[in-house]
Design a protein around this nucleic acid. Sequence first.
DNA 1: AGCACCACCTGTGGGC
DNA 2: TGCCCACAGGTGGTGC
Length: 273
Amino acid sequence: MPELPEVETIRRELEPLIRGKTFARPILHISSTVEYPTPEEFTAGLEGRTVSALTRRGKYLFINLDQGILTVHLRMTGNLVYSEAGRPREERFLRASLPFMDNTALHYFDMRRFGRLWLVIDENELNRLVLKRVGPDIFNEVSCEDFLAMLDQRRPSKLKALLLDQGFASGMGNIYTDECLFRCGLHPERRVSSLKHAEAEELYRAIQDVLADGIRYGGTTFRDYRNASGALGEFQSKLDVYGRRNETCRCGTAIEKKVVAGRGTYYCPRCQK
DNA sequence: AGCACCACCTGTGGGC
DNA sequence: TGCCCACAGGTGGTGC
């Protein structure tokens, strides 16, 4: 489900709703939702902690506390939903309930159960246990100059694989990668090493633009994504290629789909070189 | 190093 | 019409 714009949408919406609130005792409906520490340590450690700020790196959301950092990764189908009243309307796929002292709550839903929660004591532990292989946030922490310097001209991989590599830079997922490559007219199978300087700059620009647009429209609901209020995103109506196999590109050519870097990849064979 | 493949899960839509 | 299985916004491990 969620790529950078979806997580950022949740972050922006959630922060004013929960900043200053204090957690009551969490209920883990599926204990494997907690990756670290043990479920018992997680519930005991979160109870009584107060939210100070919400931050993000790539697809990771950090709920910073007066002591420690509650970390969330939604993977494919996770939803983090804030509810005014204590209990959610629909309990199917509810994996964890994180109530606050004032009887509001954060509910974590996840159909496929891939998403995870962590409770770490500080940034040091966060970097060591969670963010070992997570590169800088592509939207907030990488300037054009940085990006050009990061592009290793000897790197043999394809553009699609580069952008999906969270260790290179974090936040891009399958949808925004395809949309970004369409926007800058680069083929997903182009080799990183073949990029000219101007093309690399256009790629950087397209990444920033597509992510900004995704955030502006509240993310993409292709299937399951919901924001922190349970509402749908709206960027799906702006997609140029993703999910549009056999539809016509604005150039008149049919959009194709093939597997690149192990992921279903949509592109225009005429516009993208 | 990078890539292909599997694993983790559940649901569903497209093809036969 | 109905059934089945390929595939789905992600990532981590393994082995080549």
